[in-house]
Design a binder for these strands. Structure first.
Length: 873
DNA sequence: GCCTCGGAAGTC
DNA sequence: CTGGGACTTCCGAGGC
């Protein structure tokens, strides 16, 4: 027997026969808290689905339906089991459990049963996930089991004669349904009841990062590098020679080192597909041979397992490598950093601006064949560096810790937190609770679908110009709070008029009814309430750990509270979507309805009292504080006399904000005083504003404007930021002068082209028929960024669908405008010559929108002189 | 040259 | 197979 704490990375299942009776074993790939990897084989759970008679609520099904016919289907294992009554779409029905011989036959079986007239539930739940649901565990578990195999890296105490003997171990593994000797440190077997939940800990994952350098002439792999990170220690490996030995080398390394996470830069769209393509170029469809080159799945290297050995791309997006997690550093950087451009060079410059070693550009990747021929050592060095940086990126962004925290709070395996979508996380919590509350689990896509959009949040009209001293108030977790306080859930939605009750919660406009929480608390409100308190607990634990100087604990608690926040915010989206189980178009509509009602009601009350609401978007309100008009809006120096006035204004605003917050907060709709602004400016468009924040910290707050957009350019971002600084300091005249200077500079080409790069993401698909990139999803391919992407491809540079493509406008006088792709990050080539008129115009247009508020138009900015009107005299 | 429209991307 | 809606801006095309 062996007992240990570990983290479940991924799960799968396989069918096997025990004395001619069908069995299904669950495989859990884990990393022990103490560092070694473990494969856990769990026997004792039978896959099933549940059926009911959709036509009746009575005790027995209609006579036309036959339980026998279901039982006789060849996919069914043994006799049906009566489950009892469950709630399904507001009605109580009687349910039977149908056991299934093999999990992979469920889709077919579902259809057969539906054809017999039965309704089907709990019929699309992943079986490994079922184990987590039934045992009520998350990724961090304590496991007690028998050791079947103890390899080199397993703890000495786990080793004995039986389990270190290869042949004997293999026999024992096969005897209980395992596939053979999995490439892990240790293999154990257990039953579901020996899996127990433990508190989360940071798992010492083993990470593998790799990079291929390939020929542009013939796509062949020239060389490769890999880095393994284990216990904060890194080892570097390089691979040269013929393609076959390079790929074998990488594969052997993975099978020996047994990493949990596979990373690299742009592996999803480049390295992984290239491995597949090149190995198939050598061995065609010979699966076993392919596995020698690319068998990265965490399963035995045997004929039966070739399907799981080879990495596979699901629905053209995420890669699946059974037992391991593919985690592309490019995608992580893109999601968390939202960089202007996405090349590895650009991102590493962004993250480590002072470390030249990390982003020096010594290899011309567009001339890789020549470089490889002339200076292979430098190419290898470059290749190694490009495997190290992705790990550094993941560390810097704390990507892995965040995935693990998300897995922990959503109680899924780490791979689901890392690669799946929001509906999987929500499923994990919702199904768990529904199973324990006598509520049936409908299939996805099964509920009523909506045809038109549901109305969203309310956005208040904003006037152009400056407003002094503003208190900004925010509803805390608005949508989740509304779901809790009004008990909004598919399990509480009143579907029939006959069931109306006086205690129902009724939505303000569509008058949708929900059973009061005093009668029955809804499933989702229950979960959300639990998440709310758990977030507060993590926040508290974070605070405490910080005070005690326990850095590791503080870090963990912060990750956890953040993960809970992400998870809570995902609920609304899933329930407002048209495909999720437990959904109804009415739910999403009711949530936003109450939200609009609440916020408009507050605005109305403030208006009635003569308090000026300057702006509001969905869950925030900007209110002008009752501050003396003389008070300065820009902070005076501490020795100036006006500093007292400024301080008074600040105190008044803080006081005002706090009073509003407590006055309008009620049960289930907590209004928080978020920030105080000494000045607020908008040119009069919704979702676009700037504020000078004076509390709780001092900063410039810019929303929506070009400053934040990637399809703007550096010079515009800089100039607009400077302009806002001046405007908020009441120096609008100076700001106009400054702007004119910049426009003049660009006109006379004094500005370097690097400040004029515009970037936009570009779609595209690989047309395997014609062996070229296609952009036929655009009704008009004549767009600047599409043309820039085509130019990149032509030059032999990498292109990934969805990547941000940078370009410079070289001539806007013709239609369509002429552009040149920006390649300086990657090729060290000279920058293109830009169309100064175009950039001057775009600056004038964007900045003119703002100066318009002070009566300086776009034209005046461009011409350099202000036209005086009659009123100026 | 000016205007309108629809497609697309981006941000909140 | 799949979180949502509101809103702004830019570009190309086409009409006059």
């Amino acid at each position: 027997m062996w007992e240990e704490e570990m983290c479940i990375i991924s799960g799968d299942n396989r069918s096997w026969q025990d004395d001619n009776s069908p069995k299904t074993v669950i495989e859990l790939w884990c990393r022990a808290k103490s560092g070694h990897s473990v494969l856990v084989l769990v026997n004792g759970l039978r896959p099933y689905l549940e059926i009911f008679d959709p036509n009746t609520q009575s005790d027995s099904p209609m006579p036309t339906l036959s339980l026998d016919k279901v039982e006789q289907l060849k996919e069914v294992d043994g006799s049906l089991e009566l489950v009892g009554e469950k709630l399904f779409e507001g009605e109580i029905k009687k349910f039977w459990r149908v056991f299934v011989c093999e999990t992979w036959s469920v889709p077919k079986l579902r259809e057969k049963i539906k054809k017999l007239g039965w309704g089907v539930t709990s019929a699309d739940i992943n079986f490994a996930q079922r184990l987590l649901l039934d045992c009520d565990i998350g990724p961090h578990v304590n496991i007690v089991g028998n050791v079947l195999w103890a390899g080199e890296r397993s703890p000495d105490e786990a080793k004995n004669q039986n389990n270190t003997n290869l042949k004997l171990a293999e026999e024992n593994i096969n005897k209980i349904g395992g596939a053979g000797l999995y490439p892990v440190d240790m293999i154990i077997s257990c039953t579901p009841d020996s899996l127990k939940r433990t508190s989360p800990f940071p798992t010492p994952f083993v990470i593998f990062s790799f990079d291929l350098e390939t020929s542009i002439k013939n796509n062949k792999i020239l060389c490769a590098a890999a880095v393994i990170q284990r216990n904060n220690h890194r080892t570097e490996h390089t691979f040269t020679g013929d393609e076959k030995s390079i790929m074998e080398g990488l594969t052997n390394l993975i099978r020996e080192e047994d990493p949990d996470i596979i990373t690299g830069y742009n592996i999803d769209n480049f390295d992984l597909p290239r491995m597949k393509e090149r190995s198939e170029a050598i061995y065609g469809k010979k699966k076993m041979k392919l596995s020698e080159l690319n068998g990265w799945g965490r399963v035995p290297l045997i004929e039966n397992e070739t399907k799981r050995l080879l990495p596979e791309r699901r629905q053209n997006r995420v890669w699946r490598i059974p037992g391991r997690i593919p985690l592309d550093a490019w995608w992580q950087a893109r999601q968390t950093l939202r960089p202007q451009r996405e090349s590895l060079r650009y991102v590493s410059q962004l993250l480590w601006p002072d470390d030249d070693e990390m982003h020096k550009l010594d290899i011309d990747s567009s001339q890789m064949d020549r470089e490889w021929e002339e200076r292979p050592e430098e190419v290898l060095e470059y290749c190694v560096r490009d495997t190290i940086i992705p790990i550094d990126i993941l560390n810097k962004l704390q990507s892995i810790g965040r995935k693990e925290a998300l897995a922990s709070v959503s109680m899924t395996t780490v791979d689901i937190a890392a690669t799946a979508t929001t509906s999987w996380w929500i499923d994990s919590l919702v199904i768990r609770l529904a199973d324990r509350s006598g509520i049936a689990i409908p299939m996805t896509k099964s509920g009523p679908r909506r045809s038109d959009q549901i109305a969203g949040g309310y956005v208040h009209e904003v006037e152009a110009g400056m407003r002094p001293w503003i208190a900004v108030l925010d509803f805390k977790s608005m949508y989740p709070s509304i779901m809790i306080s009004n008990n909004i859930c598919s399990t509480t939605l009143v579907r029939n008029k006959e069931n109306n009750s006086e205690s129902d919660n009724i939505s303000p406009t569509t008058k949708t009814r929900y059973i009061s929480s005093t009668v029955r608390k809804g499933l989702v409100p229950q979960l959300l309430e639990h998440l709310m308190t758990s977030r507060d607990k993590h926040k508290e634990a974070f605070k405490k750990a910080n005070e005690e100087g326990n850095e590791e604990q503080a870090f963990l608690q912060d990750q956890l509270q953040y993960a809970v926040k992400i998870l809570m915010n995902s609920f609304y989206g899933v329930f407002a979507s048209s495909f999720y189980r437990f959904t109804d178009p009415k739910l999403g509509a009711s949530i936003t309805e109450w939200a609009r009602y609440n916020i408009k009601e507050i605005i109305r009350q403030l208006d009635d009292e003569g308090k000026h609401v300057v702006y509001s978007d969905t869950d925030s309100i900007f209110v002008q504080a009752p501050v003396d008009n003389e008070a300065p809006t820009s902070k005076p120096n501490s020795n100036e006399t006006s500093i007292d006035l400024w301080n008074d204004a600040k105190t008044t605003t803080l006081d005002f904000g706090e009073k509003l917050a407590s006055r309008f907060s009620k049960e289930g709709a907590e209004l928080e005083f978020e920030t105080a602004l000494s000045a607020f400016f908008s040119h009069g468009a919704k979702k676009r504003y700037v504020g000078r924040v004076v509390w709780p910290r001092e900063e410039l707050l810019i929303r929506g404007y070009e400053v934040r957009r990637t399809d703007s350019f550096e010079l515009l971002r800089e100039t607009m930021t400077d302009m806002f600084e001046l405007i908020l300091d009441n120096q609008s005249w100076n700001s106009v002068e400054m702007t004119k200077t910049v426009i003049d500079d660009v006109k006379s080409k004094k500005i370097p082209a690097s400040k004029l790069v515009i970037s936009r993401s570009c779609k595209g698909r690989w047309d395997s028929k014609n062996k070229q990139w296609s952009f036929d999803m655009y009704s008009n391919e004549n767009l600047p960024y599409v043309r820039a992407a085509k130019e990149r491809i032509k030059l032999g540079l990498s292109f990934t669908p969805g990547m941000k493509v940078g370009y410079i406008v070289t001539d806007a006088s013709s239609s369509p405008m002429k552009v040149k792709s920006w390649l300086v990050d990657e090729l060290d080539s000279p920058p293109p010559d830009y169309d100064s008129e175009y950039y001057a115009k775009r600056l004038a247009k964007a900045l003119g929108r703002i100066t318009e508020a002070f009566n300086w138009s776009e034209k005046e900015l461009l011409s350099g002189s202000r036209q005086q009107s009659l009123f100026d005299f």
